[in-house]
Design a protein around this nucleic acid. Structure first.
Lengths: 235, 235
DNA sequence: GAGTGGTCTAGACCACCTG
DNA sequence: AGGTGGTCTAGACCACTCG
């Protein structure tokens, strides 16, 4: 954990605990720098990320202002579902449609796989995500089984695949490539999302890049945006 | 124009001109630093932004790799349509449905307006955006007329509203707040996009933040994602 | 005019990649 | 083992905000 991450997480917690409230100004960079015995650049790095994630507003000559959080899903970032909403006051929950299992890679896959990946079977899982007890997202996930079969043996750490990959295999998500479309939901998808068949659904296809060469995680997300829209991280 | 922006734009041009080709490694930060008499931090800032915008891949211990660009619309960034695709080889074109005109703000608006904004009427315009002669996006734009009525007098600089705002009033876009949904296109929208009525359409509502306090630009975008999906800037 | 954020320079150490 | 990117420190100047 780097210094800027530590500071960033601390300020996030202070925002969610109400220690810093929306509209309030954070201490100056100079102050945070002295206070924490950090260089101003390190402080700035933390504040820049808080800005990109939509927590604060920055303006030259003025201290950083805590922003009123909107009731939106910050799904465009590449954090996992649980992380995105971890600090939120929304009640979230996940349920398996398909627990992690070993399967062959589908013949036609939505990203092109490397030869290395095709040699191994895949781990597949499918989950439905609830927000305030409403199903908002159907998520299908694949990754190369390789030497990661032990991941099937017990439930995910804190319900998060990414947390589990990190603690079990020291794998971290570094980047994501994603495409977004509006599509008609098929019958099965709409059933799970509890909307009428053929209703528009936001479709995201994702390839997560990790710190392990040639190991990627792939996801297809089907999101019901009738109730909740999806907001961007700012930058 | 800051040093890191100059360097960033220069490298972008070198990528699009084919001077750097996909798969190729850029010179090291140290080299670019010496070459341009810039500090390594300044070089890094440029490379970080190129990474976020999806032009290069960065990996510790290895020089930055130029990425194969995908035929996708980088619409999630807050750049204008023309800027996004300026370096692309795709043919783009815009046409007015409604040329800029002065109107009253709609009674119900998709973002909440400040009292200051409501005092003034709005400039409204509506455009249809073509990619390779296919209509891909319908865009409605509003902003406070204020002292900016001269903007109605002549065509936009290089067809870009944002460029015009910058050269005429020194206004720069600093940030964007946007929401994304999948909706059923209404009849009018689908007609313009040349798709069947009720087809799913990607809907983005945007509030652009500028360097001028209390001056915002608002847009509603309706995107046909059947042919082209929308990709993220990475970070 | 004091406080503050944005940019830039100079230099250091570490972790990772590649021969 | 040398090259390279990621993090961090120390210090500087400028442009903007606000009382």
């Amino acid at each position: 954990m780097h210094q800027y991450e530590i500071l960033k997480e601390r300020i996030k917690k202070q925002i969610f605990s109400g220690e810093f409230t929306p509209g309030e100004l954070l201490p100056s960079e100079q102050f945070l720098s002295n206070e924490n015995s950090l260089n101003r650049h390190t402080v700035r790095r933390a504040l820049e990320e808080l800005h990109r994630e939509g927590y604060i507003r920055r303006q030259k000559g003025r201290r950083s202002e805590v922003i009123q959080r909107h009731p939106r899903l910050g799904l465009l970032s590449f954090k996992g579902f649980s992380e995105v909403l971890a600090y939120n006051d929304k009640k979230i929950r996940s349920a398996y449609i398909q627990e992690p299992e070993i399967i062959e890679w589908p013949e036609t896959f939505f990203f092109s796989l490397s030869e290395e990946e095709k040699k191994q079977p895949a781990v597949f899982l499918e989950r439905i995500r609830y927000l305030e007890e409403n199903p908002v997202m159907l998520e299908k996930t694949w990754f190369s089984a390789g030497n990661k079969k032990s991941i099937l043996e017990k439930p995910f750490e804190r319900g998060s695949l990414f947390t589990t990959l990190q603690v079990s295999y020291n794998i971290e998500i570094k980047d994501v490539i994603q495409d977004i479309r509006a599509i008609k939901g098929d019958k099965r998808t709409c059933n799970h999302l509890q909307i009428n068949s053929q209703e528009p659904v936001l479709y995201l296809s994702r390839k997560y890049v990790t710190n392990m060469p040639d190991f990627y995680v792939y996801s297809q997300l089907y999101v019901n945006t009738h109730e909740y829209s999806i907001s961007n991280d700012n930058y």
